[in-house]
């Protein structure tokens, strides 16, 4: 590669970073604007919108509701995904590829179709729109990711570790809890945070499966439809900071796992 193409590429990279960050930075800035009108230039600054958000019980309730959904979803996805991975990973059986394809299916279906099909299915199962339906929908969506991450980790667990546990008196249940599960820990932390993010950030499933009680993205969407306001920026910024921290944490634990230092 010549010097000029190298420089050109680094320029493209940094332009791309700017493209990713500038809209978010502007959005955060707008949350400090001392005016109800969204738009530039910003002449005066205030914390009022943030204070308003933290005092608004409705927003706080919505936040807690989203959190409850995300935590339940994460727990269920981890249990189900780990179970599927422990079945698909070590065993060979006819039709394994089909089961694997079915496991990945929810991850490749376009969002709107996933939401619609789950809406119909919830009706079929007599689950009313609301928390239960959203948790089911998010879990279905998250299980493929957990399964893939756990399967990858499981593939690196030496068979002899399980055999050693069995040899020392553990039955398969005890061997799983004492040896396999601790080994999966970094994968479960990474996948778990990833599930929290997917659930917490999801709009389309929460929108079609929810009742009158909105989740945080649905609330922001509803507020946006009735007009932009710095209040939305303040809410969004809180979400942004939280998700970014969780994301970095998840990424770190996954990288560390792949490097094998844990």
């Amino acid at each position: 590669m010549t010097r000029s193409t190298r420089i050109l590429m680094s320029v493209i990279y940094w332009a791309f970073v700017v493209y990713l960050f500038v809209p978010l930075i502007l959005m955060v800035m707008m949350g400090f604007k001392d005016s109800a009108f969204i738009g530039f230039p910003i002449k005066a600054w205030t914390f009022e919108w943030y204070l308003g958000v933290f005092q608004d019980t409705k927003v706080i309730n919505v936040f807690l509701y989203s959190m409850a959904i995300a935590l339940s979803t994460t727990f269920l996805s981890l249990v189900i995904g780990t179970w599927i991975a422990s079945f698909l990973g070590p065993y060979k059986f006819p039709g394994k590829l089909i089961v694997f394809a079915l496991t990945c299916l929810p991850a490749v279906i376009p969002g709107i179709i996933s939401a619609i099909s789950l809406r119909i299915y919830a009706r079929f199962l007599d689950i009313d729109p609301g928390m239960m339906a959203i948790i089911l929908g998010h879990t279905v969506h998250n299980v493929p990711f957990v399964t893939l991450v756990v399967m990858a980790r499981l593939a690196t667990l030496p068979k002899s570790h399980i055999e050693a546990a069995r040899d020392l008196g553990a039955d398969s249940i005890v061997a799983f809890f004492r040896v396999t599960l601790p080994y999966l820990r970094p994968a479960l932390i990474g996948a778990g945070i990833f599930c929290m993010l997917l659930s917490f950030d999801d709009f389309v499933r929460a929108f079609f499966l929810g009742s009158y009680q909105p989740t945080l993205p649905v609330l922001i969407f509803a507020k946006l439809r009735s007009g932009m306001s710095p209040e939305i920026n303040a809410i969004s910024t809180v979400v942004l900071v939280m998700t970014a921290i969780l994301g970095i944490w998840a990424e770190r634990s996954m990288r560390r796992m792949n490097k094998g230092t844990e």
Partner: peptide
């Protein structure tokens, strides 16, 4: 009991 080739220490 067994001593494994790779020791299989947890």
């Amino acid at each position: 009991n067994m001593v494994f080739q790779d020791y299989a220490l947890f």
